[in-house]
Amino acid sequence: MLDVSRTAGLGLNLRRVRTEKGLTLDRLASLSELTRGYISLVERGLKVPSIAALLRLAKALDVSVAYLFDPNSAQAPRYTIYRQREQGAIQTRDGTFGLSALAAGRTRKMMEPFLLTPPHKSAPRASHAGEEMLFVVSGRIVIKLDGEDIVMDKGDCLYFAGETPHEVRSLGRQKAEVLVVVALASSDTA
């Protein structure tokens, strides 16, 4: 089920930052290497961006991913805490894909942590700057990493270069939950 308020909020923040920086959809598409149509869908709250897309948009806009989720965040706190009962995952309209930014309140960080609920069908292939770590919190997944299928069970962890093309999907009846941490090179952080 799509939580329109959270998806729309991310889209509205993205549109606001883009227009404040004087960028057209076409220019942001060029800078982020995403399509104009895709960005338009995200801005209207009709598409949940992938982690790779969020990283590309944030880099193109020269802001942190956290800023796209919460542009009103104050000066970086000593710590941030994510409480599931107070937050909700942004999900696709058909409920196949869920994504929660786990440290949205903290800016200028070297890591971007997310809780991912991968669909049963492969999500679009991703690649991005930096390094990535996946830890299976529950369920089973298969990640296609540069063409190789790697099956992972609860408790398994995988660490790899983000530039390596990858896609992930849930296996079995229940969707998996995966902790994803993307570590950015210092020049990639905003």
Rank of each mutant, 00 (worst) to 15 (best):
M1H: 14
M1W: 08
L2V: 13
L2E: 15
V4T: 13
R6H: 00
R6L: 13
R6D: 03
T7F: 00
T7E: 03
G9Y: 01
L10N: 12
G11V: 01
L14D: 00
V17K: 12
T19H: 08
T24L: 08
L28E: 08
A29Q: 00
E33K: 14
R36G: 01
G37S: 12
G37R: 05
L41M: 08
L41I: 00
V42I: 15
G45V: 06
S50H: 04
S50W: 05
I51P: 03
I51N: 03
A53N: 03
A53S: 15
R56F: 04
R56G: 01
L57W: 02
A58R: 02
V63N: 01
S64H: 08
V65I: 12
Y67N: 00
N72S: 15
Q75E: 14
Q75A: 15
A76C: 11
A76L: 06
P77N: 13
Y79V: 11
T80Y: 09
T80M: 07
I81Q: 08
Y82L: 03
R85D: 06
E86P: 00
E86N: 13
E86T: 03
Q87W: 00
Q87C: 00
G88E: 12
Q91K: 12
T92C: 12
R93V: 14
D94T: 03
G95K: 08
S100M: 00
T107S: 14
K109A: 12
E112R: 04
P113L: 08
P113A: 03
L115E: 15
L116I: 05
P118F: 01
P118Q: 01
P118C: 07
P119E: 01
H120N: 09
S122C: 04
A123T: 04
H128Q: 11
H128N: 07
E131G: 02
E131K: 11
V136W: 04
V137S: 08
S138Q: 12
I143Q: 11
K144T: 10
K144L: 10
L145Y: 02
D146C: 08
D146W: 05
V151Y: 12
K154M: 13
K154E: 15
G155T: 07
D156G: 11
D156P: 04
L158T: 05
L158F: 08
L158H: 09
Y159S: 09
F160E: 07
A161M: 12
G162N: 06
E163S: 07
E163F: 02
E163I: 09
H166S: 00
E167Y: 10
V168E: 09
V168M: 15
R173K: 15
Q174V: 14
Q174G: 02
K175E: 09
A176P: 06
L179M: 12
V180L: 09
V181D: 05
L184H: 13
A185V: 00
A185S: 14
S186M: 11
S187F: 11
T189R: 11
A190D: 01
A190L: 07
